[in-house]
Design a protein around this nucleic acid. Structure first.
Length: 266
DNA sequence: CCCGTGCCCTGGCGGC
DNA sequence: TGCCGCCAGGGCACGG
């Protein structure tokens, strides 16, 4: 489940791989992933740059902009042959014979075709809040002040703040010693400040490690996927808390699996 | 507007 | 060994 750091890693990897390549053809195997892929002609366009906003990857082409979201399991990888494997839903062929493949077992990801004029003004990018790097305590505290949802749900809301997903939000709240179930409007100004500090700490560390989950692939056959490590609480049900040794428990918050130390987090 | 629920999908896993 | 049902969850549509 790629979150901000994984997308950052994917972005950097793809930049090394496909910058300046020219599109020769696009094959869309499963249309809902790339609804306009068969109608908008992208042949002849080059990959000028690749950006990231929150969990979205942004491919800047000559005249169009591709806005991609991997959702839970989507992966991009480069191939040097024409072979097609199961779960590959989009193939973008370049004039040099290589191709960029979109692979997604659950078919939840999306690749939207936009223009430079509209890509920032239209959903989904128009709805994104600031990143943890650029956010202020004042802004976030004001957003939370009127929210009656659990703090975890508010932190997952990408229109308030980007980058945190289900894994890193659990890690952030553990480090900030805040219970995920507490209502957002019950979180103090100082705690909001702490949340921002810890979110950046978690995200920066993850990025420095190539993502807490590491994106990697081989040039021909593909996907080796994401690896997990470094987690303090997420997925650690029944393990001792690294701080106090109390058993980590798993609960549901906002319908999502949530890992907490009931002793450390208040 | 705000909030909660269900949907999109498939594969993996637990239970029997 | 096989089958069934549940779970995983980011973002969005929809309804109260």
């Amino acid at each position: 489940m790629p979150e901000g750091p994984e997308i950052e890693t994917v972005k950097e990897t793809l930049k090394r791989q496909i910058l300046n390549k020219e599109i020769k053809a696009i094959k869309v195997i499963y249309e809902p992933i790339m609804p306009e892929g068969k109608t908008v002609d992208l042949t002849g366009e080059k990959i000028i740059d690749i950006d990231r906003m929150g969990k979205f990857l942004i491919f800047k082409l000559t005249t169009h902009v591709l806005v991609a979201h991997l959702r839970m399991e989507g992966k991009f990888f480069i191939k040097e042959n024409e072979n097609h494997v199961k779960h590959e839903h989009v193939a973008i062929y370049f004039t040099d014979g290589t191709s960029l493949r979109y692979y997604d077992v659950r078919k939840f990801g999306r690749i939207l075709i936009k223009t430079y004029d509209n890509y920032l003004k239209t959903p989904p990018l128009s709805k994104l809040g600031p990143s943890p790097k650029n956010i202020t305590t004042n802004y976030l505290f004001e957003k939370f002040k009127n929210k009656k949802t659990p703090i975890k749900v508010a932190l997952l809301d990408q229109s308030i703040m980007t980058d945190l997903g289900n894994i890193y939000v659990d890690e952030t709240l553990f480090l900030a010693k805040i219970m995920p179930t507490r209502l957002a409007n019950q979180v103090s100004y100082d705690e909001v400040e702490l949340i921002i500090e810890k979110a950046n700490q978690v995200l920066d560390k993850a990025i420095s490690l190539g993502g807490t989950t590491i994106y990697s692939y081989q040039s021909s056959e593909g996907v080796t996927g994401f690896f997990q490590n470094e987690l303090q609480v997420h997925t650690k049900a029944n393990s001792p808390c690294p701080i106090c040794q109390t058993k980590i428990i798993k609960i549901k918050v906002g319908g999502r699996g949530t890992y907490v130390c009931e002793n450390c987090q208040k």
